[in-house]
Simulated assay, not measured.
Amino acid sequence: MHDGLDIARVGSLVGDPARANMLMALMDGGALTASELALEAGVGLPTASSHLSRLMDGGLLRLASQGRHRYYSLSGPRVAAMLESIMGVASSVGPQRARPGPRDADMREARLCYDHLAGEHAVAMLEGFLSRDILSESGEAIVLGPAGPAFFAGFGIDTAALAGRRRPVCRSCLDWSVRRSHLAGSLGAAILDHIFAEKWARRQAGSRAVRFTPPGRQAFEKLLLPPR
């Protein structure tokens, strides 16, 4: 018997269609009740409860109680990153299409990946940061570049404070739709918080898609993307 990480156990949890639909419904970093997740999975409540129990036991979900309600959410950003990567693999090995990723143009352009930005805008943002030494590549890892701390301080983001947390400041996340990496980690989350706080963009109701306003798109491109 192989003595190592139990990949098969995690794979079996994600591999069930009903559980996969539940996990995908939580990819925006939000929380849903068992009844809501049952609807997402297309199963009855007793069956949903059984699936949720397995996902909880497997460490993929966490549970919070508020009054009489119990809310399920992904246990952390690593679970979201795993799901995003699986979607990319599924897209590449499944029926071939001219373009990978979601058919919805808004989802391709910008969407939530747990608590950070994904999609074409997010990939362009990371590549812009790397081209200007705001971020740097260290082997396969992404780290703050020489220009990083001062640049992000201009957005009110204290990278030193982020470094004091348990979560990595920078982490690459393979983007499902673009097949290149976007920025995750505490810095990716802080940037998305800034985008929403400045009202550059808003989440599209009932979707993970993020829509930029025309002024917000201009501000985003001017400050976060490389000069053209």
Rank of each mutant, 00 (worst) to 15 (best):
L223Q: 13
A122W: 02
V178A: 06
E198K: 15
S172M: 02
S131C: 03
L162R: 06
G15W: 15
M125E: 02
E127L: 00
R171V: 11
E140T: 14
A141G: 04
D3G: 04
K199I: 08
Q218N: 03
S131G: 02
Q204V: 07
I195Y: 05
F220E: 01
R202C: 14
V89A: 09
R99L: 09
A189W: 02
R78D: 14
R103E: 12
S172R: 12
R70K: 04
D158R: 06
S75D: 11
G67H: 07
A80R: 07
P146G: 15
G29P: 03
A153L: 15
A190Q: 00
G11H: 02
C173P: 00
A219R: 04
A160M: 10
G148K: 02
R166E: 15
S91Q: 03
R54H: 13
R78I: 11
G164V: 05
A31R: 15
A161E: 15
P17D: 07
I7A: 09
H2W: 10
P95N: 10
H69K: 08
L13F: 14
L13V: 15
G76E: 09
A18V: 07
M82N: 03
M125D: 00
A31T: 08
G30I: 10
A184C: 08
S75G: 08
A41K: 02
D6H: 12
R180T: 03
F212V: 07
Y71V: 06
G156E: 04
I195E: 06
D28P: 04
S181H: 10
R217S: 14
G44K: 11
G4H: 09
G4K: 12
I191P: 00
S131W: 00
P102I: 11
G164T: 12
F212R: 05
P168Y: 07
P214C: 14
M22V: 04
A8N: 09
R103K: 07
A153H: 15
A190C: 02
E137W: 00
V178N: 03
S138T: 03
A147N: 15
F155T: 04
S75H: 03
I134K: 02
V169D: 01
L174Q: 09
V89H: 05
F196R: 10
S75A: 14
P214N: 15
T159C: 11
A122C: 10
D158Y: 10
S73V: 14
A110E: 00
M22S: 01
L130C: 08
S131M: 01
P149R: 08
Q218K: 09
P168Q: 11
D115K: 07
R132H: 05
S50P: 03
H2V: 07
W176E: 01
F151T: 00
G59V: 11
V43A: 11
S49F: 04
D133L: 03
